[in-house]
């Protein structure tokens, strides 16, 4: 757990949306954005929005968000007075630990929530951020 990062406080409704999405997309990977605000002491996630996984081919191990959907997400945040705080995606039958594919395109500052999903449902959820050395460190995830 990296205490350099602000704790990520996620509204229960947003967490429920991300978990439900992970279960409904199973055995494929789901993906989406989450929004909220950053204060001096914490990051607060108030809203999660589902985005289509546009990855061609096998979506059980990969996800991709289109440039147009990213642009729309930034515009939505600006319009609503929210910050685009990060991206969530699921790892079906795999731990919620970032892979080399996740690391390869990761951006600084964003929080990356990963939902680990088993056939019986969501197993666990963890959140990560990129360090200045371009490695992932876990951040504290709190559901309110």
């Amino acid at each position: 757990m990296n205490d350099q990062f602000l704790p990520l406080n996620v509204a229960e409704s947003a967490m429920t949306e991300m978990r439900n999405h992970g279960e409904e997309a199973f055995p494929n990977e789901c993906c989406g954005f989450f929004y909220g605000e950053e204060t001096d002491g914490e990051r607060i996630v108030t809203l999660a929005k589902r985005i289509e996984n546009v990855k061609e081919g096998d979506q059980r191990r990969r996800f991709e968000i289109s440039g147009k959907d990213y642009l729309a997400a930034e515009r939505f945040a600006a319009r609503e007075g929210l910050s685009l705080l990060g991206i969530y995606h699921s790892h079906p039958v795999h731990p919620a630990i970032p892979s080399e594919h996740d690391l390869a395109v990761a951006m600084p500052w964003f929080s990356y929530i990963i939902v680990s999903v088993e056939p019986s449902g969501v197993d666990h959820v963890r959140s990560w951020q990129l360090t200045p050395e371009r490695e992932f460190d876990e951040e504290r995830l709190v559901v309110n």
Binding site: F63, I65, P92
Partner: peptide
Amino acid sequence: VSIIPAIAGGSK
């Protein structure tokens, strides 16, 4: 003009 980070990844 917009700068857009590619958003992708996956478990394996």
